[in-house]
């Protein structure tokens, strides 16, 4: 379809396109390559290699000893399982709650809509770190229905649980905003057509709107996994609200390595272990992710 030179660089110009791209790729990769290379070395070797290209290469005194040591120091699989579970729950529930709210804001008429929208925009700019103290106090006093065997019991305080890591982070103003923008761009009249067929709002939403909105769902999924303070990067919050080691996520594990004597090789091995799964997932979904963001567009 397209015939423009920019989109089809002529062979002679290819070098001039690939060269900067490759240099840039090096710029984006080098810290990560360094991390993996260092994870295979002793501390002495890491510091000795610091000022040369050897820092990027698995050379010298190389072994998997640091990885073995990680498993002695940290219950890695347990932490990974916790993180995966919490991330999954936050994302899944977040998709449902935020998309429905976005839909109501974008395509339904109801009293208070303007007010709610204003509130959501205002909360966009509240960084989580600044309200963490009131948050701790709050969740420590919230009620929860627990189970003693099969008998439901009222418990007070959410600390030291999975739900304290999940529930507060389901709602996300930015996500609601993205959903609302996307839904607004869908053709008008979809609902009326559905109503003619006798479908209720929920059914219309589920059967018509959601299937038409796959791109925005995919985008939000990645955003929630990558950027939410409750998912892959959860750190400060679980430190303060989760006391039991069995419930801790992977990022908290980073702190396990900063003892009186820090082994940097082990730190590098651990951060490689918690970074590489994300990279793998991203590479697997890379194509559909970028296409879906493209499809979602940025609409007003």
């Amino acid at each position: 379809m397209t015939t423009t030179a920019l989109k089809h660089p002529a062979p002679a110009r290819r070098l001039w396109v690939y060269l900067p791209m490759t240099i840039l790729a090096g710029f984006f990769l080098f810290p990560i390559v360094f991390m993996v290379a260092a994870s295979l070395k002793t501390d002495h070797q890491i510091f000795a290699d610091m000022d040369s290209l050897r820092a990027f290469l698995p050379v010298g005194d190389v072994s998997f000893a640091n990885y073995a040591a990680v498993f002695d120091r940290v219950p890695f699989w347990r932490f990974l399982g916790n993180t995966l579970f919490v991330t999954f729950m936050v994302t899944a529930l977040g998709l449902v709650v935020n998309s429905m709210c976005g839909y109501a804001l974008a395509r339904m008429k109801w009293k208070g809509r303007g007010l709610v929208f204003g509130f959501i925009i205002a909360t966009l700019i509240l960084p989580f770190d600044t309200t963490i103290v009131p948050m701790v106090y709050l969740v420590a006093n919230l009620p929860w229905i627990g189970f003693d065997g099969f008998r439901p019991v009222l418990e007070i305080g959410w600390l030291n649980s999975y739900h304290v890591q999940i529930v507060p982070f389901i709602v996300n103003a930015f996500t609601i905003f993205l959903f609302a923008q996307y839904f607004k761009s869908l053709p008008k009249g979809l609902e009326e057509a559905a109503a003619m067929d006798g479908a209720g709002w929920l059914r219309t939403y589920w059967r018509i709107i959601v299937p038409l909105s796959k791109p925005v769902f995919a985008t939000v999924t990645i955003l929630m996994v990558v950027t939410s303070p409750a998912t892959w990067n959860a750190y400060l919050w679980p430190l303060m609200t989760v006391q039991s080691e069995e419930l801790r996520p992977v990022m908290v594990g980073v702190q396990y390595f900063f003892q009186l004597d820090t082994s940097w090789g082990e730190v590098m091995a651990y951060i490689s272990m918690i970074t590489i799964p994300m990279v793998a997932v991203f590479i697997a979904f890379q194509r559909s992710f970028i296409q879906s963001i493209a499809g979602a567009g940025m609409k007003d």
């Binding site: 709650v97 935020n98 429905m100 709210c101 109501a104 109801w110 809509r113 709610v116 389901i170 709602v171």
Partner: peptide, 13 residues
Amino acid sequence: AGTAFAIPAIVLL
């Protein structure tokens, strides 16, 4: 319906 769709998010917010 609009209120019902938005209410979970509003409460959590």
